[in-house]
Amino acid sequence: MGRKRKYMLENVLYTLPALILVTMVIYIPFVMSGYYSLTEWNGIAKEPVFIGLKNFKTLFAGNTEYIKSLTFTAKYTVLFMVLSNVLALALAVALVQKIRFANLMRGMFFIPYIMSMTIVGFIWKFIFSQGFESLFAKTGWKFLEWSWLGESNLAFFAVVFVGVWQSLGFYIVLYIAGLQAVPKDVLEAATVDGAGSVTRFFKVVLPLLGPSITTCIFMSLTNAVKVFDIILAMTKGGPGGSTYSATLDIYREAFQNNNYGLGSAKALVFFVIVLVITQVVLKIMHSREVEL
């Protein structure tokens, strides 16, 4: 019993600092945000004014800017998830083959992921604005002359491209780990049964990649819905507010418009939306794993 108590005491002492930090950084601000969503406060006044559910009524009554930001975030998330997972899986399949410089290429793909997203955004802003202009002068390719950050549709695809480019290496690593964990004897048995490379991939390898696919889809979903840094660095929500994400809209409402009450209400609504979507996606993916 003495040894058991000592073990429990050690567990409590080791985990207590982490619990205190998580409570201070996450749980307390979350509760405070819930309170501020029921108030009208500019962040300067000593005391916020309690107004009840008025901020939520404002949102659900048809706040066009917030709905527009949610629509942009939804489109960005879908396209980001599809492109990042499809490209990462295809590149992972290529990089697990016995080819020269495979390890070097893995490292090259992973380098953008360890870079700051803000720095990546500024780099690609320079490339889209000045780099493409120089390349157009040398090559004459028409697409280099387009205003990638000055037109609404092009700015959307530019932001998606940079987001996928920056995070692609992370998903490649996860898929490579999953591919290397596929049992060799299963592949050999499929080859003996006459399955070709395409059939082997879709009938044997892909079903066995269920856990890796679930992880990558969940990670790409969470990374996409909270997109902020790249947009802030590249377009700042422009042109004409066409690339305002939900997180950027919350930031603008709270810290630029000094409306902490409405900004907190937007954050809570967005939190509930993301919570529901992630739970639905996880349930669907886990059920698919069981079926496979």
Results as ranks from 00 to 15, higher is better:
residue 47 E to H: 13
residue 34 G to T: 12
residue 109 F to Y: 06
residue 154 L to P: 14
residue 222 T to I: 10
residue 216 C to D: 05
residue 187 L to N: 04
residue 277 I to A: 07
residue 142 K to T: 14
residue 128 F to Y: 11
residue 49 V to K: 12
residue 286 H to M: 12
residue 203 K to S: 13
residue 88 A to Q: 00
residue 256 Q to E: 09
residue 157 F to Y: 14
residue 16 L to F: 14
residue 210 G to W: 04
residue 64 T to H: 13
residue 60 F to I: 02
residue 144 L to P: 05
residue 214 T to N: 10
residue 202 F to S: 09
residue 156 F to I: 00
residue 75 K to Q: 00
residue 227 V to D: 06
residue 9 L to Q: 09
residue 243 T to R: 08
residue 72 F to G: 09
residue 76 Y to A: 06
residue 200 R to I: 02
residue 46 K to F: 15
residue 168 L to S: 00
residue 82 V to A: 04
residue 224 A to Q: 02
residue 263 G to S: 02
residue 224 A to L: 03
residue 115 M to W: 03
residue 74 A to Q: 03
residue 17 P to Q: 07
residue 242 S to Q: 10
residue 253 E to K: 05
residue 201 F to H: 03
residue 195 A to N: 11
residue 21 L to M: 06
residue 224 A to G: 05
residue 81 M to F: 02
residue 211 P to W: 01
residue 58 T to G: 09
residue 197 S to A: 04
residue 222 T to C: 06
residue 25 V to R: 00
residue 111 I to H: 06
residue 118 T to M: 08
residue 128 F to N: 09
residue 268 L to T: 13
residue 160 V to Y: 01
residue 160 V to K: 07
residue 283 K to A: 08
residue 242 S to K: 14
residue 57 K to H: 12
residue 17 P to M: 03
residue 272 V to D: 05
residue 17 P to W: 01
residue 155 A to S: 15
residue 52 G to V: 10
residue 191 T to W: 04
residue 12 V to S: 07
residue 16 L to Q: 11
residue 18 A to K: 05
residue 84 S to D: 04
residue 103 N to H: 15
residue 247 T to W: 00
residue 9 L to G: 08
residue 1 M to T: 06
residue 42 N to A: 07
residue 128 F to D: 09
residue 2 G to R: 09
residue 48 P to H: 03
residue 147 S to M: 06
residue 182 V to T: 06
residue 19 L to E: 15
residue 40 E to P: 05
residue 150 G to D: 08
residue 211 P to E: 01
residue 250 I to M: 10
residue 45 A to N: 14
residue 130 Q to T: 10
residue 270 F to K: 01
residue 199 T to K: 15
residue 152 S to Y: 06
residue 140 G to F: 02
residue 163 G to N: 02
residue 229 D to K: 03
residue 257 N to A: 08
residue 166 Q to T: 05
residue 225 V to T: 01
residue 70 L to Y: 13
residue 138 K to H: 11
residue 31 V to R: 11
residue 141 W to D: 09
residue 284 I to H: 08
residue 145 E to T: 11
residue 259 N to W: 12
residue 148 W to Q: 08
residue 38 L to S: 12
residue 77 T to C: 04
residue 29 P to T: 14
residue 137 A to W: 12
residue 90 A to I: 07
residue 155 A to K: 13
residue 56 F to V: 10
residue 22 V to T: 07
residue 109 F to L: 02
residue 33 S to C: 10
residue 156 F to H: 00
residue 161 F to G: 07
residue 25 V to D: 02
residue 218 F to K: 11
residue 89 L to H: 01
residue 194 G to W: 01
residue 168 L to G: 00
residue 128 F to I: 01
residue 180 Q to T: 12
residue 83 L to T: 03
residue 283 K to I: 11
residue 143 F to G: 05
residue 216 C to E: 03
residue 85 N to V: 01
residue 292 L to Q: 15
residue 68 K to R: 11
residue 136 F to E: 05
residue 41 W to Y: 07
residue 147 S to I: 01
residue 148 W to I: 06
residue 121 G to S: 04
residue 108 M to F: 15
residue 114 I to D: 00
residue 231 I to T: 10
residue 97 Q to L: 11
residue 221 L to S: 01
